[in-house]
Simulated scan of single mutants.
Amino acid sequence: MKPSNVCPRFEKAIQIVSQRWTGLIVYLLLSRPQRFNEIQGSIGISGKVLSDRLKDLEQEGIVERTVIPSTPVVIEYSLTKKGAAMEPVINQIESWSREWI
């Protein structure tokens, strides 16, 4: 087997983006910060899977979790600068899907 000619950074980017639900979560957060239940209700994902995916995206520096002290405590998720930089890619996928899917 010959070694891969794929750039390791490209491979990592594809690995992140191709995780189930990641694209939809990023797409939703492009418009504005959202609470957990808003994200869950918009895409119909289980709470456990959404929690896991948000944690993964936080670890990658794509999503930021903000705790707003109130009663009850409010937690919002938003895109970091790194996450917001994905907007042109997400928009191109949306455009492609409208034409070809």
Score class of each variant (00 low, 15 high):
Asn5Glu: 14
Ser70Ala: 09
Ile45His: 10
Ile39Cys: 10
Ile68Gly: 00
Gln34Val: 03
Ser70His: 05
Ala13Cys: 08
Leu54Tyr: 08
Lys81Ile: 11
Glu38Trp: 06
Arg35Phe: 02
Pro8Asn: 03
Glu76Tyr: 07
Asn37Phe: 12
Ser97Met: 06
Leu50Glu: 10
Trp96Ile: 04
Leu54Cys: 15
Arg98Ser: 05
Lys12Asp: 05
Ile45Ala: 11
Pro8Cys: 03
Gly83Tyr: 04
Glu60Val: 05
Glu94Phe: 03
Tyr27Thr: 01
Ser42Ile: 06
Ile16Pro: 01
Ile39Asn: 09
Glu94Asn: 04
Ser46Phe: 05
Ile68Ala: 01
Gly41Arg: 14
Val6Leu: 13
Ile75Met: 10
Arg32Lys: 08
Leu54Lys: 13
Gly23Ser: 10
Ile62Leu: 15
Glu76His: 08
Gly44Cys: 06
Leu28Phe: 02
Thr22Asp: 08
Gln34Asp: 03
Ala84Leu: 13
Arg9Trp: 05
Leu57Gly: 12
Glu38Asn: 10
Gln40Cys: 09
Arg35Lys: 11
Leu50Pro: 14
Thr71Arg: 10
Leu57Pro: 11
Leu29Arg: 00
Phe36His: 11
Glu38Lys: 10
Leu24Arg: 14
Leu79Thr: 04
Arg32Phe: 01
Ile45Gly: 13
Lys12Val: 02
Cys7Asp: 15
Ile75Gln: 11
Ile68Phe: 02
Arg9Cys: 07
Ile90Met: 03
Lys82Ile: 07
Asn5Phe: 13
Ile75Cys: 06
Ile68Tyr: 03
Lys82Ala: 15
Leu30Ala: 00
Glu58Leu: 11
Ala13His: 04
Pro8Trp: 05
Pro72Glu: 05
Ser78Asn: 07
Leu57Ile: 14
Gly41Asn: 15
Ile68Cys: 01
Gly41Gln: 13
Ser97Glu: 05
